[in-house]
């Protein structure tokens, strides 16, 4: 396959970027999207040009490092009806056709400043976790595991929410650049477990507050996030977050400043 790529090139956060066109030839349909970019980069290096930076690590859809906008869709999700939602590293070139033009852009959000080209800084998501996305259980203080029973239904639902890989595609896809789905997945995961109850109110209040502080937009329930999420985190989690938040505010929880 031969493809035309239009790739966002930006040397650093401080400099302006632009789309640059590259031609890649002999792309095998069995390549992953990132392998296709590897081929481009090797070619660029040998041509004496600057290779395209992009984040990646596990290349098996679990670490959440990778992620670019492909033809206007986060991880390309939603472009192809025939395969499940996926991460960029698990998208394969057989989904494209010979002669296609592919636009590749970084996640765009104030809270995700561009580092270089397609790599952005997502540490804002970690700071949301820092503000309350945990259960305080210092090492060594834990009771015997079977002293805490968790209904299978709750445990399964908590697991579903906990599979969020923190890739940031939800933010990238949301018209408001909101990280609501990310935050909601953690609030739901911990809020469904008995161990998560003592900190439940403070957790949700603080995490939402931090999300606002980081400069994310507010959620208006559009649903692009869930449609772009490689792990299929559902909109139900957002509703659950809102429910928890209202309960917490009624109970008098206020964000730490």
């Amino acid at each position: 396959m031969n493809l035309k790529l239009r790739v966002w090139r930006q040397r650093s956060a401080a400099e302006k970027g632009k789309m640059v066109t590259y031609q890649v030839t002999d792309v095998s349909p069995d390549m992953s999207f990132l392998e296709m970019l590897d081929v481009l980069n090797e070619q660029l290096i040998l041509d004496g040009e600057d290779p395209v930076s992009f984040d990646h690590d596990c290349r098996e859809g679990i670490c959440g490092s990778c992620g670019v906008m492909i033809n206007g869709r986060a991880h390309g999700n939603g472009l192809f009806d025939d395969h499940p939602q996926t991460t960029t590293c698990q998208l394969h070139m057989r989904s494209f056709k010979d002669g296609d033009t592919i636009d590749i852009e970084p996640w765009r959000a104030t809270a995700f400043p561009v580092i270089k080209d397609l790599a952005v800084d997502r540490s804002a998501l970690d700071r949301i976790i820092q503000s309350g996305g945990y259960i305080s259980a210092p090492t060594g203080t834990a009771p015997e595991a079977h002293s805490i029973l968790v209904a299978k239904k709750d445990s399964d639902a908590a697991f579903d929410a906990a599979t969020c890989i923190g890739c940031g595609a939800c933010v990238a896809a949301c018209p408001n650049a909101s990280s609501m789905l990310f935050t909601a997945s953690k609030v739901t995961h911990l809020g469904l477990m008995p161990q998560g109850q003592p900190e439940r109110n403070d957790r949700v209040v603080n995490m939402i507050h931090q999300q606002d502080l980081e400069g994310f937009g507010g959620c208006t329930n559009i649903g692009e996030c869930s449609a772009s999420c490689p792990k299929g985190i559902s909109m139900e989690n957002i509703s659950r977050l809102n429910h928890d938040l209202l309960g917490a505010l009624r109970a008098g929880a206020r964000p730490k400043s």
Binding site: M19, M69, N71, A109, G217, G218, E224, A227
Partner: peptide, 26 residues
């Protein structure tokens, strides 16, 4: 909220495709 959203993404995508968004929500 509109203004917050604008500040949250000052630079728009060059290519953009919405799939979940309905006409109503947009």
């Amino acid at each position: 909220l509109w203004r917050q959203a604008k500040r949250a993404r000052p630079q728009q995508y060059v290519a953009r495709k919405q799939v979940a968004q309905s006409y109503a929500s947009r």
